Amino acid sequence: MEFDHDGETFEGGSISIDNKNFRNCTFQNVVIQYAGGPVEMVGSTMNSFSFQFGGDLAQGLFTLYQLFGTDGMLQIIRGFTDPQPGEIVIKV
């Protein structure tokens, strides 16, 4: 597979990651823009970053927030990262 970005460092500013793939890249003090397109990251690291969501993904996240509030959103996120018994489990 050929990577769009290989061994690059992104520092400051913002970067859209939709429809791209990254290998051995570093993201430092960046705003990561994401609207739900496919992304592949292999061996990359992120330090001091924030997300800016767009498109249908942003609308979907806002709808989940309206339905479940902050605590519900945190439980959904934990379902991806560290599911606990009795919580929502996300299967992909």
Score class of each variant (00 low, 15 high):
Met1Ser: 07
Met1Thr: 01
Glu2Cys: 05
Glu2Leu: 10
Glu2Lys: 03
Asp4Cys: 00
Asp4Ser: 06
His5Tyr: 15
His5Trp: 15
Asp6Thr: 08
Asp6Cys: 12
Gly7Arg: 11
Gly7Met: 03
Glu8Arg: 01
Glu8Gly: 03
Thr9Phe: 08
Glu11Thr: 14
Glu11Ala: 12
Gly12Met: 08
Gly13Cys: 02
Gly13Asp: 11
Ser16Glu: 07
Ser16Trp: 00
Ile17Glu: 04
Ile17Gly: 06
Asp18Gly: 15
Asp18Gln: 14
Asn19Pro: 04
Lys20Trp: 02
Asn21Ile: 15
Phe22Ser: 05
Phe22Met: 02
Phe22Pro: 02
Arg23Trp: 10
Arg23Ser: 13
Asn24Ser: 01
Thr26Leu: 04
Thr26Phe: 01
Thr26Ala: 08
Phe27Ala: 00
Gln28His: 11
Asn29Val: 09
Asn29Leu: 08
Val30His: 02
Ile32Phe: 03
Gln33Thr: 13
Gln33Val: 14
Tyr34Gly: 04
Ala35Phe: 04
Ala35Glu: 11
Ala35His: 07
Ala35Pro: 10
Gly36Ser: 05
Gly36Ile: 12
Gly36Leu: 02
Gly37Ala: 00
Gly37Met: 09
Val39Asn: 14
Val39Lys: 07
Glu40Gln: 12
Met41Asn: 00
Met41Ser: 08
Met41Thr: 06
Met41Gln: 08
Val42Gly: 03
Gly43Asn: 11
Gly43Cys: 02
Gly43Asp: 01
Gly43Tyr: 05
Gly43Trp: 03
Ser44Arg: 05
Ser44Ile: 08
Ser44Tyr: 08
Ser44Asn: 05
Thr45Ser: 13
Met46Ala: 12
Met46Leu: 10
Ser48Gln: 02
Phe49Asp: 05
Phe49Trp: 10
Ser50Ile: 00
Phe51Thr: 04
Phe51Val: 07
Phe53Asp: 07
Phe53Arg: 11
Phe53Leu: 12
Asp56Thr: 14
Asp56Met: 09
Asp56Arg: 14
Leu57Gly: 09
Leu57Cys: 01
Ala58Ser: 13
Ala58Lys: 14
Gln59Trp: 00
Leu61Gln: 00
Leu61Tyr: 03
Phe62Lys: 15
Thr63His: 09
Thr63Leu: 03
Leu64Gln: 02
Tyr65Asn: 14
Tyr65Gly: 10
Leu67Glu: 10
Leu67Gln: 15
Gly69Arg: 08
Gly69Phe: 07
Thr70Gln: 13
Asp71Tyr: 06
Gly72Asp: 03
Gly72Phe: 09
Met73Ile: 12
Met73Ala: 05
Leu74Gln: 08
Leu74Ser: 06
Gln75Ser: 13
Ile76Ala: 13
Ile77Phe: 08
Ile77Thr: 11
Arg78Trp: 09
Arg78Ala: 10
Arg78Val: 01
Phe80Val: 07
Phe80Tyr: 11
Asp82Trp: 05
Asp82Tyr: 05
Pro83Cys: 09
Pro83Phe: 09
Gln84Val: 13
Gly86Leu: 06
Gly86Ser: 01
Glu87Trp: 13
Ile88Met: 13
Ile88Leu: 15
Val89Ile: 02
Val89Ala: 05
Ile90Ala: 05
Ile90Pro: 14
Ile90Phe: 02
Lys91Cys: 10
Val92Ala: 06
Val92Tyr: 11
